[in-house]
Design a protein around this nucleic acid. Structure first.
Length: 227
DNA sequence: CATAGGATCGCCT
DNA sequence: GGCGATCCTATGT
């Protein structure tokens, strides 16, 4: 990966949640502003997806991603340059959230990559919970933590409180300190690195899930799973 | 305006 | 492994 400039983020007192480290770095624009979406999808494994609202932080380590390669990819919403109100955000600048509703129920979270006009995105399919487990369980309507409750693209968004109203949100900002704000006014999403290293042998590569309609593109090995 | 189908999940058998 | 939930999006008339 090209050298990237990271912005140091000093975490406030809430950082002594188990699983966090004293210092993390929000992924900068240069991380998302790259042309190889499969490379970015791989690089996102091991990073930490964070949401912060009303002073409450929830976060988990990314363990599964899928790359969607814009207009050349029949599995992508922007296949053949299709541009609609729903997928408009994908054509915009990198480092933003593309959140859309799937099967009428699930909000699916993607990060927009590559330069403006290139509708590339990475779908986040699973995280391992790290911060704010109680809050995430509450959002999932659970009282006790099952083995895995933030696996699956629909379940992780629900645990993190992400929904379609966050479509278009920038991922380049840190936490809002505006605790007096409520609901979406204070909702921030970002992805950070805590230095966790992923080695190539621990990455399982498979075709993407649920894209059988995409012909030959359905066979492309663009799903990445942290073993 | 009508309608088919979807980058899923959870519960059932 | 089957199926219902649940509703937006895209597309066609």
């Amino acid at each position: 990966m090209a050298q990237m400039r990271v912005r140091s983020l000093r975490l406030p007192s809430e950082s002594q949640h188990p699983g966090t480290v004293s210092r993390s770095a929000i992924l900068p624009l240069s991380f998302y502003d790259r042309s190889c979406v499969t490379e970015i999808a791989k690089d996102l494994l091991g990073k930490i997806l964070v949401t912060h609202t009303g002073g409450i932080r929830t976060a988990g380590r990314i363990t599964e991603t899928e790359a969607y390669a814009g207009h050349n990819d029949l599995a992508c919403h922007a296949a053949n340059g299709r541009r609609t109100r729903r997928n408009e955000v994908m054509f915009g600048p990198p480092g933003h959230a593309y959140v859309y509703l799937c099967y009428g129920i699930h909000s699916l979270f993607n990060v927009v990559t590559n330069g403006e006009g290139h509708a590339d995105a990475v779908l986040i399919r699973s995280i391992h919970p790290l911060v704010g487990v109680e809050t995430m369980l509450l959002r999932r309507g659970l009282t006790k933590a099952p083995k895995e409750f933030t696996t699956g693209p629909g379940r992780l968004t629900r645990a993190l409180g992400i929904h379609t109203s966050h479509n278009g949100s920038s991922l380049l900002r840190g936490p809002s300190n505006a605790k007096h704000l409520t609901g979406d006014d204070s909702f921030e999403i970002w992805i950070e690195s805590d230095g966790y290293r992923v080695n190539v042998e621990s990455i399982l590569v498979t075709p993407r899930i649920g894209v059988d309609y995409a012909g030959e593109d359905a066979k492309k090995p663009w799903r990445f799973v942290l073993k």
